[in-house]
Amino acid sequence: MISAQLVKELRERTGAGMMDCKRALQETGGDIEKAIDELRTKGLAKAAKKAGRVASEGIVVSYIHGPGRIGVLVEVNCETDFVAKTDDFKQLAHDIAMQVAASNPEYVSREEVAEEILNHEREILRAQALEEGKPEKVVEKMVEGRLEKFFKERCLMEQPFIKDPDKSVQELVHENVARIGENISIRRFARFEVGEGIEKDTEDFAAEVMAQLK
């Protein structure tokens, strides 16, 4: 099992993301030097070093899914207008928009999740674990493990990339940073789905239910 301390140390030495560090350590059997080489090979350490640079250029892309039932707007930023106009950057932005359409995230990253929401989620997960009869000493570990699943489902950067589920969206972005040579960030997105949040007319809803029962 890879310890949190080992992940922290690798992150401090490379600047790569937490999940990237954890995965690299798992792939190398916990050997931190080999994990550093693994991150460098993938360009993730290099990408992390560019993360502090200002990315104020970029594009807003739109994506309409199917017959127009889902629409997405995404703002993806880079450092220069030159890169923003390249096919590689435009393809990345398009892929991100498709990801939002398909996976319906609520946040760009875990840092956007308000503390009160996390505390509420922890309370629910803790209650679930206790209800399952788990001993108190393992409940906290279970809560944190399930909270990681919460992040993976609801935070765009931690979701499995729809075109290659073996990598996260964060890893996709890092790979593009390493290839393009500029810092890239996903600033914000908006997702629209036809009928979302609208209460259906009672008669229409009943007719729909009856049609499904036939």
Rank of each mutant, 00 (worst) to 15 (best):
I32C: 06
F192V: 10
R110V: 08
I70Q: 11
R188W: 10
V173D: 01
M142P: 08
L147D: 08
R122G: 05
K134W: 09
T28G: 01
E112H: 12
E9C: 02
G181F: 10
T14C: 07
P105L: 06
F151Y: 12
G66N: 15
I36E: 11
V60H: 06
K152H: 15
H120P: 01
H120Q: 14
Q170Y: 12
E12Y: 11
D201G: 09
K8G: 08
A35L: 03
H94S: 14
T86P: 05
E208K: 04
V72S: 02
Q99M: 00
H94G: 15
L156F: 09
R11A: 06
V61E: 09
G133N: 05
G58C: 00
N104V: 03
E116H: 05
S185L: 09
L10F: 03
S56T: 13
V61W: 04
Q170V: 06
D166F: 10
V7W: 04
G66S: 11
N104E: 06
L147H: 07
R69A: 08
A84M: 04
I180F: 01
L44I: 11
K149A: 15
A206C: 06
L92I: 03
I96W: 01
K90E: 04
L147R: 04
K50L: 13
Q26Y: 15
A48I: 04
E203H: 14
A114I: 12
R154D: 11
E158D: 13
S168C: 08
V60T: 07
E38T: 15
K8S: 13
E203R: 15
G29W: 10
E121K: 05
L25Q: 01
S185T: 14
C78V: 02
Q128W: 11
D20F: 03
V100P: 00
K85L: 07
M142F: 15
F192N: 05
L118Y: 06
G68F: 12
L39E: 07
E121M: 04
R122V: 10
D201F: 08
E9S: 08
M210T: 14
E208I: 07
Q26C: 13
T80S: 01
D95Q: 13
K163P: 04
G52V: 01
L92M: 07
A47G: 08
E12F: 08
E12G: 03
E153N: 13
P160A: 10
P165S: 10
R11C: 05
R126I: 01
T41N: 11
G29Y: 13
I59N: 04
A55Q: 03
R69N: 15
G58L: 00
